[in-house]
Write a protein that binds this DNA or RNA. Structure first.
Length: 600
RNA sequence: GGCCCCGUAGCUCAGUGGAUAGAGCAACAGCCUUCUAAGCUGUGGGUCGAACGUUCGAGUCGUUCCGGGGUCACCA
């Protein structure tokens, strides 16, 4: 029962008792009181004024008095300024929140809803290593899954690995032509990078062949099709589809290398999946729907035998769903896979974490599912996110500006090590402990940096900024957690400190000080944040919250001492405040996939 | 060109139709014989892309325009 809800209910009740008004929470607004005014929560009265034919001031006065009278346990006082009724909460409910939750690791989380949700994210191609864009996708998908769990849903994390197709054949062919049997082991390279090199090699050769053909007077468009290396690749794809043993063996071998590499990266960044779909196993799905769609006249066949759907009435275009030769296109298998997901897992909702460049594609998919009359069509949700750009513009593999995920992590760890050494606070750590700390900080910085912005928006990756450990960053929040742990260690080492005593419920007689109040009120909102972040599927709401919480705690920390509190009662209170702050910070960071160090 | 998204401080971003638009970075000025200074406190910095409109009230909603991006593949 959040304060927000309690106040809402109290206001509705008062409006009924005072004026016989049957109001709902949509008829008025409750805001947090702005810092320049005194109060904790504010009722905005303007919307009510019309119905009640009263001046805002008079209404505020009457409502305030009535609220205070009927909820003396909740409110301490009120003031009215223009159309705003500012309410000050009493200490007792604040202390109650603190007392009953400062050790509650489930604080803010929702009870089970029995809603089953699948989150598909990551979904890499097996022809090159992961880059910065994949990181945003992975962090986002993982975090949204955790946030949905915190909202009480059952969540299944999945990846769809794009392991077949012409682009995969490109690296295979290049390896065959130029590798002389080299392997990741012989080259001493991570498997995904190794294969990626041959993908690059393919493109280099391809461009050269095009240039050569153009020199003979061939038009560029024709040259692109006629380049021998491209023809060989296409042949390889045909061989693959026919199940040619050698091609399949090569394919398996090279994909295996890539998976080894991916696994290392996933493990490092903490991505995990309950199930992985492989396109090589799903790409034939969906063809049945084409037959069905033709029978129902939802789809139509062109003269060349290709099958289309007309979505012009929906404001979209005509879209091919099956090639003239009867082979699937991307959307064909998507239709099949969508059904597979719902039927095999009995889902209530299916979320796709995919970049916004595919907004149109996903819209088309949903529309086709709807037209086919599939009952789950409306429960397909595209969680689209914006591209990550560099300060210099877009990442372009051709210009070598793609930020590689593994490199980036390595760089961040190096930076974390530098900062840590300079500060010299953990000189007694073992090398293992140090490495663990660097990893926690590096990933904390990266994840926070990529998750703190609204997923829907494009974002700029600024290397210097991302590596910053001050201000609105992961390490800042982690630091705040470590600070609390440090306080507790200090207290426990004191002979006067008694753990038994510390756990006894306390009755507080001294009034809460402003920062103590603010902290409790802010901590109490955590549940609302989880709910909001879940509804919007937006981890940045959590990042924002947890940062402000850390900020607030640090102000409190600078202003008030825990160890040398004025009285024993204040010390007990501040210990609980500190514990609860660190607990919520840890919990919130966990939802972002970020760990906390005990010392840093 | 059609459709979709975005324009908020020098930079990166917050901002459920409500009070004098906020953070971080960068700049400047303070604070470590007391719990971790990866911190705290303060100062400066804005025509919320532009114009109309709706509203008691617009950064937020609507229309138009300007600027940026995405997409409209028998690519994925």
């Amino acid at each position: 029962m959040s304060f927000q809800f309690l106040i809402e209910s109290a206001v509705i009740k008062s409006l009924a008792e005072l004026y016989g008004l049957n109001a709902s929470n949509k008829d008025f607004q409750i805001n947090e009181t702005k810092t320049e005014f005194s109060g904790d929560y504010t009722i905005v009265l303007f919307a009510l004024v019309k119905n009640l034919k009263k001046s805002p001031e008079a209404l505020g006065q009457q409502l305030g008095e009535h609220l205070l009278l009927t909820n003396e346990h909740l409110f301490a006082s009120f003031n009215v300024i223009k159309g705003f009724l500012n309410l000050v909460l009493a200490d007792a409910p604040l202390l109650h929140i603190l007392e009953s939750n400062y050790q509650n690791i489930h604080f803010g989380k929702k009870p089970a809803t029995h809603k089953k949700v699948m989150v598909e994210y990551s979904s890499p191609n097996t022809n090159k290593p992961l880059h910065l864009g994949h990181l945003r996708n992975n962090f986002l998908g993982w975090s949204v899954a955790e946030i949905l769990k915190a909202n009480g849903h059952e969540v299944i994390k999945t990846a769809v690995v794009n392991d077949r197709g012409i682009h995969i054949c490109k690296s295979m062919l290049a390896w065959e032509l130029y590798a002389n049997g080299a392997t990741p082991e012989s080259a001493n390279e991570k498997g995904d990078h190794f294969v990626g090199d041959y993908y690059v090699k393919f493109n280099d050769e391809y461009l050269q062949e095009i240039a050569t053909l153009k020199d003979t007077g061939m038009a560029e468009e024709v040259a692109k099709k006629e380049a021998p290396i491209m023809k060989k690749t296409q042949q390889m794809l045909l061989d693959w589809e026919e199940g040619n043993k050698e091609v399949r063996a090569l394919w398996q071998k090279m994909n295996g290398w890539v998976y080894d590499g991916f696994e290392k990266t996933y493990k490092k960044i903490g991505s995990d999946f309950d199930h992985t779909f492989y396109e090589s196993e799903t790409y034939l799905l969906g063809k049945d729907f084409v037959k069905e769609g033709l029978q129902k006249n939802i789809l139509y066949k062109k003269d060349d035998g290709s099958v289309w759907i007309d979505l012009t009435a929906e404001g979209l275009d005509e879209k091919l769903v099956l090639r003239a030769d009867g082979t699937s296109v991307y959307i064909t298998q998507d239709i099949g896979l969508a059904k597979e997901k719902f039927e095999n897992y009995h889902l209530d909702q299916s979320i796709y974490v995919i970049g916004d460049e595919q907004l149109y594609h996903m819209k088309v998919l949903k529309e086709i599912l709807r037209k086919l009359g599939l009952p789950f069509a409306d429960e397909v949700h595209h969680l689209s996110y914006g591209m990550v750009e560099l300060t210099s513009g877009k990442m372009k593999s051709r210009e070598g500006t793609v930020v590689d995920a593994d490199d980036l992590i390595q760089e961040m760890e190096t930076t974390a090590a530098q900062h840590t050494m300079e500060l010299g606070k953990v000189n007694d750590f073992t090398p293992q402990e140090l490495n663990k700390l660097y990893e926690t900080l590096a990933l904390g910085a990266m994840k926070f940096y990529l998750l703190r912005v609204d997923p829907k928006k494009r974002m700029v990756f600024n290397p210097e900024e991302s590596i910053d450990f001050h201000g609105y960053t992961g390490p800042f929040v982690q630091y705040t957690y470590a600070r609390v742990q440090s306080i507790m260690r200090k207290l426990q080492s004191k002979s006067t400190f008694n753990a038994e005593e510390e756990n006894k419920p306390t009755t507080y007689r001294e009034a809460l000080l402003p920062l103590e109040r603010q902290l409790i009120i802010y901590l109490e909102k955590y549940g609302n944040i989880i709910e909001e972040a879940g509804k919007e599927m937006n981890p940045s709401a959590v990042a924002n919250y947890v940062f402000h919480l850390a900020k607030l705690f640090n102000s409190f920390y600078a202003e008030h001492s825990v160890a040398n509190a004025e009285t024993n009662e204040k010390q007990q209170l501040r210990i609980r405040l500190s514990l609860m702050s660190s607990l919520v910070i840890k919990s919130g960071l966990q939802l972002l996939g970020i760990g906390v160090p005990e010392r840093m």
